[in-house]
């Protein structure tokens, strides 16, 4: 199943290479990975979605990531209350006849059309991976010409952040 890991790392050159190299040699398949700066200078945060089979693999992922000297903190936030979002850009066939239909269709997704040409439109949507999947499914019949997803990025919900932060550290240290 897919699991979501939040990894805090030093923003050194090569750190992404260390992490992806680790997954390569331990045989873990990356579904998506997003990296960006955090509120602290010199520290980046990665949100990694991995396909792992079981608890033991999950534990190995956490431990192996932790072993990296440039990794400061690892949290498996799959089951934690999180806000997870990804952004998708979809260029879809849209002759004039279907254009208004499309506009109606994407309305409930709070997606928007950000670029228009004579025979296509580009739609932008932000949401949970499930929502993005649903939108893609609905747009498929029109003919998707190009699609780009950012992958998931996530943070803990405010009330639970401190609690999980404590317990996840314990999880790593107690073993």
């Amino acid at each position: 199943m897919n699991r979501v890991f939040a990894v805090t790392v030093n923003n050194h050159s090569g750190v992404l290479n260390r992490i992806t190299g680790l997954f390569l040699r331990r045989g873990f398949n990356i579904q998506s990975i997003t990296v960006g700066a955090t509120e602290t200078d010199g520290i980046s945060r990665m949100t990694i979605v991995l396909n792992v089979d079981d608890e033991r693999d999950t534990e190995q992922v956490v431990k192996q990531l932790h072993k990296q000297i440039d990794v400061l903190k690892v949290q498996d936030i799959t089951e934690a209350p999180i806000v997870a979002r990804e952004l998708v850009l979809i260029r879809v066939n849209s002759p004039l006849t279907t254009r208004s239909e499309l506009t109606t269709l994407i309305g409930p997704f709070r997606a928007s059309i950000i670029d228009v040409s004579r025979d296509s439109v580009t739609i932008q949507a932000v949401g949970s991976p499930e929502k993005v999947e649903a939108l893609i499914f609905l747009l498929q019949p029109y003919g998707i010409k190009e699609l780009a997803r950012t992958g998931v990025t996530a943070v803990l919900r405010a009330n639970d952040a401190a609690e999980l932060s404590r317990s996840s550290r314990n999880y790593v240290l107690s073993i």
Binding site: R56, Q60, K63, Q64, H66, K67, V172, L173, I175
Partner: peptide, 17 residues
């Protein structure tokens, strides 16, 4: 001393790091 070794190959009942 390396927590990543514990449980890697053999399920462990009492881990000691």
């Amino acid at each position: 001393i390396d927590p990543a070794e514990i449980g890697k190959n053999v399920p462990t009942d009492i881990p000691v790091v």
